[in-house]
Write a protein that binds this DNA or RNA. Sequence first.
DNA 1: TTTGTTAGCTATAACGTTATAGTATACTAT
DNA 2: ATAGTATACTATAACGTTATAGCTAACAAA
Lengths: 344, 344
Amino acid sequence: MIKRITLKEIALELNVSISTVSKSLKDSHEIGIETREKIKAFAKAHNYKPNNIALSLKNRKTKTIGVIIPEIVHHFFSIVINSIEKISSENGYNVIIAVSNESFEKEVLNMETLANAHIDGIIMSIAKETLKNQDFHHIRETIDMGIPVVLFDRVISDLKCDKVIVNDKQASKEATQTLIDDNRKNILLLTSEDYVNVGNLRTEGYLEALKDNNIVPDSDLIIKVKDKKSSQAEMSFLEDELEKILKSKKIDAILGVNEIYAGSALKVLKKNNIIVPDEISIISFTDGVISRYSSPSLSTVSQHGEIMGERATKLLIDKLTGKTDISEFKTEIIKCSLIKRESS
Amino acid sequence: MIKRITLKEIALELNVSISTVSKSLKDSHEIGIETREKIKAFAKAHNYKPNNIALSLKNRKTKTIGVIIPEIVHHFFSIVINSIEKISSENGYNVIIAVSNESFEKEVLNMETLANAHIDGIIMSIAKETLKNQDFHHIRETIDMGIPVVLFDRVISDLKCDKVIVNDKQASKEATQTLIDDNRKNILLLTSEDYVNVGNLRTEGYLEALKDNNIVPDSDLIIKVKDKKSSQAEMSFLEDELEKILKSKKIDAILGVNEIYAGSALKVLKKNNIIVPDEISIISFTDGVISRYSSPSLSTVSQHGEIMGERATKLLIDKLTGKTDISEFKTEIIKCSLIKRESS
DNA sequence: TTTGTTAGCTATAACGTTATAGTATACTAT
DNA sequence: ATAGTATACTATAACGTTATAGCTAACAAA
């Protein structure tokens, strides 16, 4: 067990005061050049590294960013985390990860844990249950404690913090329009429950596109996937619903608000020997690995998770370093882009 | 900005000493019951929370675990992280994530950063480049500093630390045997370069199975996917190689050491109108989202990332809490299991 | 009365830093 | 010779805790 050398030990060894050592290592001109060099050499030889915990205590800064996300095993979120970690480490920040598992209670706990860990700021995407409860007191309290928060993707507009979102509604509208332009009029929408604001926005975009083209929306053509204990259960719900609809309605296109929905739909279509995209074409959100490796590969709306993570982290670091005013909040909107593949 | 109340402030407010406050909150019998209760009530009313940074400085423990992984955007690793985070938070530990991006240099840097963050221990999976370089000085140094390390999946046997691995060789042998039992004799292996020990073990298992069945291995039927700048580039390398082999050799099965390889292979087969599993059947490692959503869905060898993460974290926490001896090292072997789907 | 004991509290040092203020010595200016 | 000032260092407090040792008053025992 190699113990790290401290200023005190260096001071003792070289018969100078701790102050002298500290100042020398900071190259202060208060200390004579000879002493300074001697101390620096000694410190280097003994691989001196300042104790960051002590510095944190003194400076009230930990150089650590807390991240709260609903899930890790999820293509979009893992891309965002990857990006957050990259930008953070480039700027000398550590990243503590906390997962809410879409649970309100866990999210509240996460915030407390992170605050207790004295992270300098938080980047988060809100859990489904929290959106459902419409209870954001934990976020408000954190902000009130003076901890800067940046929200991404799943965002609440009236919170006093920076936000990074995607032009969901517009992108959904455009994707739907693309389908319509391809002469598909009976478009099935696979979306999440209403309180998930992202899904909601995408639903709105879908409806607007229909309206713009004088297509009367058919509520039977909107499947709202119910939240279940497991995504497995959610998928079998979706599959059952879809099977039913295929029997009763004529549809020629599917818009999925994420690639798991779309991927599951694709499986059902194949099982029913429906050819994609000839008979039914598909566009989905989330440009992940399912879209790329399914066959036919899925056309997707990419939310550019990498850019989201980068922007969110930069916004936060700008706050932390005083580059931007603490009481001034930005909302950055990332433009989605449609990646055309075989399914449309 | 709400500042947290400190012991000092409570002491001042109630006209007692800091010691009295500290002891009262710890319910010490040195302090009279009345004073004690008064102080506890006051602390609760003012939402006193001990400053963990100060405690870390004093106790030389941060209750934080560092995790170094080659990638986050990767089904297996994200499952492991998820599991590490879960067990850690259940035990009151925070998790700092660092990504090596398969780079040796970045991994060395990561270790230093984590050591400077004074994490209590490290859980890691070694980067490809590190395996290639065969340079593990950074891991050795960390261990010598008294920081317990737990390696998972990509492991080096002669390091003095706990390890969690999978019975790769055996599982690969069994998967190959399954293919042979299905009367497939011309099995193509998609594997990684030799220095990736996991891939190597799987190759060995494949070869052993062939030998057991008196099949002479054909080196043309082993594609070693070269490391490239991007996984995109690696995949097009794989696809080109596979196309070539399809033209020159008769093959009736494919074993992939991960699902990206297998998924890419599936795409190539489809492009060539080869029916899976009738003409060629496929088994792959990594039970991820590609395997489940591709069609036909892929039979996979699951490495049980969830269990790996759990075991690794428990091993580490047992060390940290003194439950197990610091100088005693365990290697846990997780049994893979074959998940049969449509591709075989 | 003197000594001992106990209850209930306080003072201090320490964890490892840094910033502020302070001191001793030598040199310069008048 | 005296005051002023620059040089090169040191002492101290502070960040928020806790553990150890120390102190005081009250009471009991001899």
